[in-house]
Design a protein around this nucleic acid. Structure first.
Lengths: 317, 317
DNA sequence: CATCTGATG
DNA sequence: CATCAGATG
């Protein structure tokens, strides 16, 4: 009832590229920006410095982070951007932005980074983004296959030495209604997509792959064999991907480490009890193995039901 | 994804009566009650004592309060029940409970009061309730007219000396889609309903009538003539009701008082600026006028976008 | 349990 | 600018 003020829409202008293949460019109405975010920090007191090197002793020259942020608007309200300032990655990939391009908060941009966004046609659903210090040679959205490309799940950024692919892989859902699509269609086509890139340049693929690969990758393997993210089909899909010539960087480095998770349901205090899942990965072309320095799971960084993961690479010229 | 604990449903058992005419009694599954409300207070430091009397000098013996609480669950989370303890009314009527009978919080009951509830078929919508120290002779729900009675908008409690009717009158909506229903059907039938009661006993009707009657009853009359709650049709409906032999107790007592509102939109800081509407009323049978002591608007009681209103009556045996 | 939308006010 | 629901995770 009445007295409604004009709607304070907020919008990030001048964001680079950022069109999903399915969407046409909206005319950039210069809307009023309200609500800027205060300088809340998620990361105060945390130490993000980290010494590491390749097996042959080379120091990292690329730091790439990936984080399912579970809603970029809520995440920014919690001070999510402070993570970038503190981690200082060369690239940060985010998944589940849950925000249409035009609805991105005005202050989503970060000094010193180029940003790229892809969003689902369905409002408030899925979506991915990339922050990158270096401007990529080229950025593309989706797999180039219509049926997969209306949900903003994949962004590919090409750099001199590699393709960076970030993905938010479809969840099979409660009761697994989406399992056939996920395992028989998406997994198959995504694998082929990566293989094609891999022919011309090595690939660094990261994101929320919505699968815990092995029993070691979740706290309760026994009771979750019929749960989305740990079905035989999803696990096999990941096995099949690796078999094409890729490595799971974390498991490559730490084959025996238990309790290493990147996701904890908000329900039942799972995070405090470390009842989690490793759903977030860096998957690298095998020929990048020699350049791998480390993969760190930032389990203490809050702000989402996932935590960030960080890849350190010593890439050659 | 997984690790979901069992749902902690909460429910108030043994609530008296409380069936809408449209609903059948649910079998009282003895569900686990979780979440009880802590003793938060909305009212600390406030003084609810009040001296008043009728024109012929009689002190009040009934105190009746009415409050649109905008969601009983949110209201209880904010400590809404503390208002009852502090105001100590003989009767409290609440509107917009937005809660099905079966979903009422376990601790909705208040010591020393009988409680009665009516809810809409549509979940989380409308709904009314009554707390009463005295057990009424009889309680009925709705107007006895099917088309009006599926939204839990009216409860009638019969006492020795009067009928108490509490109402949450239909909002005409943004763009006034419901104005024809509201003014041509509801207002007409509700008036007739009250008239019928009024034949046998005096009526005290209260609630959110979703109309500001006169220009004095809202801050911005000029700009709201096409807004739900201040259209000519809705205002006329109220005029027509009074013409049948009722008084608006507040305006009866304070015909000239400006800035007396019971609702402020949450938008644009309206309450701080007192940009409000008087939408909540006590409407009394004219023959109760001589028993009227006072009508107080508790504008400082927070917890909803409406505030409580309180009626003091000196009813004769 | 927490994010969204969309209805409603 | 709040409430609630329902979808989704």
């Amino acid at each position: 009832i009445a007295e409604s003020p004009k709607k304070g829409k907020r919008k990030a202008e001048d964001t680079e590229d950022g069109e999903t293949p399915a969407k046409k460019s909206k005319s950039a109405k210069a809307e009023e920006k309200t609500k800027l975010h205060k300088a809340v920090s998620l990361t105060k007191g945390m130490d993000f410095s980290h010494d590491c090197q390749t097996k042959d002793g080379r120091k990292p020259n690329w730091k790439i982070a990936s984080w399912n942020i579970n809603g970029i608007r809520a995440w920014m309200d919690k001070g999510g951007l402070s993570y970038i300032a503190d981690e200082k990655p060369d690239i940060l990939c985010v998944q589940e932005t849950k925000c249409a391009q035009e609805e991105l908060p005005a202050d989503v941009k970060v000094d010193g980074y180029h940003d790229y966004w892809s969003s689902a046609e369905q409002a408030g659903y899925a979506g991915t983004g990339i922050y990158s210090k270096t401007k990529p040679i080229n950025v593309t959205y989706g797999l180039g296959i219509k049926k997969h490309d209306s949900e903003g799940r994949v962004i590919t950024a090409e750099y001199d030495q590699f393709f960076l692919v970030t993905a938010y892989v479809p969840n099979s859902g409660h009761g697994l209604p989406q399992l056939p699509y996920r395992s028989k269609e998406w997994d198959v086509d995504f694998r082929e997509y990566l293989n094609n890139l891999n022919k011309s340049k090595p690939v660094i693929m990261c994101g929320d792959l919505n699968v815990a690969h092995l029993e070691i990758d979740l706290a309760n393997p026994k009771t979750n064999k019929k749960t989305a993210g740990f079905t035989a089909e999803e696990r096999q899909g990941f096995t099949d991907l690796l078999a094409e010539g890729y490595i799971d960087s974390y498991r490559e480095l730490y084959p025996e480490t238990e309790g290493a998770y990147s996701f904890w349901t908000y329900m039942g205090n799972a995070r405090a009890k470390n009842v989690g899942w490793r759903l977030d990965y860096f998957v690298l072309s095998e020929r990048l193995k020699e350049d791998l320095c480390d993969n760190v799971i930032r389990k203490d960084v809050m702000g989402s039901d996932h935590c960030p993961i960080v890849l350190y690479m010593a890439l050659k010229e």
